[in-house]
């Protein structure tokens, strides 16, 4: 069942002659318990779409539904948002930030304390909860930012570029945390322009460009559309018709390495070895490079994803 439904959502910015549409008739669905990725280059309209999906902004056109109800009619606490900008008060401690956020959603007393302590523990900030947030490291600040989005016990959590300015170690910790929350049943929409992050975390993604969703599917399905690369160091000649039979497109031979372009190179590689050796050609080494999201994006839009 779809938890979140966006139906032909349009968002406009500016006024008068400068008014422009930044999100164009976007429709998508996010299932309950899903970890969904929203990928696109800077300026693609991801954050504008996020504003509408999270309820920060009413769409100029179209509708957004959450848990079967129009988003405007759902309780504000059902949506958790960890914006790209760090959304906490630097001059409050981590605990005070969480307490304030909880109080805004009506939590009080023991319930509030329990929720705050549980969240602090879950993001690894229990020991530093009494420190002012502006003394936290970049990773700790990101974790606090995410914890704040969860204080209202939301049905869906939007994470907007959660790894900006975070070192690799902290990023891995964040990923573990996101996976934990998701495995606990929390629906998460992960927004980023880092395609490898999205690929690593999200089984299903939507790719945006110029305000439109240009693709929305499972990652494997999207990758299967594009050709990867297969390279083999051969001893002897392979049959001339072999590449054609396997759907390989020759890219050339260099220093004994033959290269082909193909769909799903990891699936084809064992077949290539088997058939080559049957024909008396020994494959001494083999390398595969599957298609990546960059290629997917390039294939869909004709533009590079501008990954940074």
């Amino acid at each position: 069942m779809a938890l979140l439904v966006a139906d032909k959502v349009g968002v406009w910015r500016g006024a008068g002659p400068g008014r422009r549409q930044v999100v164009r008739d976007v429709s998508l669905q996010v299932a309950s318990g899903e970890l969904f990725g929203l990928l696109g280059p800077n300026g693609a309209g991801k954050t504008s779409l996020l504003s509408v999906l999270s309820g920060l902004e009413v769409p100029g056109s179209g509708e957004v539904w959450l848990e079967g109800k129009p988003l405007a009619q759902t309780h504000p606490g059902r949506v958790g948002l960890a914006p790209q900008d760090l959304a906490f008060y630097g001059n409050l401690t981590g605990r005070e930030n969480l307490e304030f956020a909880g109080q805004l959603y009506g939590l009080a007393g023991a319930t509030l304390r329990d929720r705050v302590e549980r969240l602090l523990a879950s993001v690894g900030l229990a020991d530093s909860a009494g420190r002012l947030a502006n003394t936290y490291s970049g990773g700790m600040q990101r974790r606090l930012n995410m914890a704040l989005a969860l204080v209202s016990d939301p049905a869906i959590l939007f994470l907007d570029e959660p790894t900006v300015g975070v070192d690799p170690h902290s990023r891995n910790l964040l990923f573990e945390q996101i996976r934990d929350w998701n495995s606990g049943g929390l629906t998460i929409v992960y927004i980023s322009h880092y395609m490898e992050e999205v690929r690593e975390l999200c089984p299903r993604i939507a790719i945006m460009d110029h305000g439109q969703v240009v693709a929305c599917d499972r990652v494997e399905t999207l990758l299967a559309r594009e050709r990867g690369t297969l390279r083999a160091l051969l001893e002897g000649e392979i049959a001339a018709d072999l590449p054609g039979r396997l759907g390989l497109i020759p890219l050339g031979i260099q220093d004994g390495w033959a290269s082909w372009s193909c769909h799903e190179p990891d699936r084809i590689a064992p077949e290539l070895v088997r058939l080559a050796e049957q024909a008396g050609c020994r494959v001494r080494r083999l390398e595969t490079r599957p298609a990546d999201l960059q290629q997917v994006f390039l294939g869909l839009t004709g533009n590079a994803l501008r990954d940074e």
């Binding site: 504000p76 948002l81 959304a87 906490f88 956020a101 930012n145 704040l148």
Partner: peptide, 14 residues
């Protein structure tokens, strides 16, 4: 207003 806290306040029942 420049930070995300403004967005958080707007999401809250205020």
């Amino acid at each position: 207003r420049r930070q995300g806290t403004w967005q958080r306040l707007r999401l809250a029942p205020l």
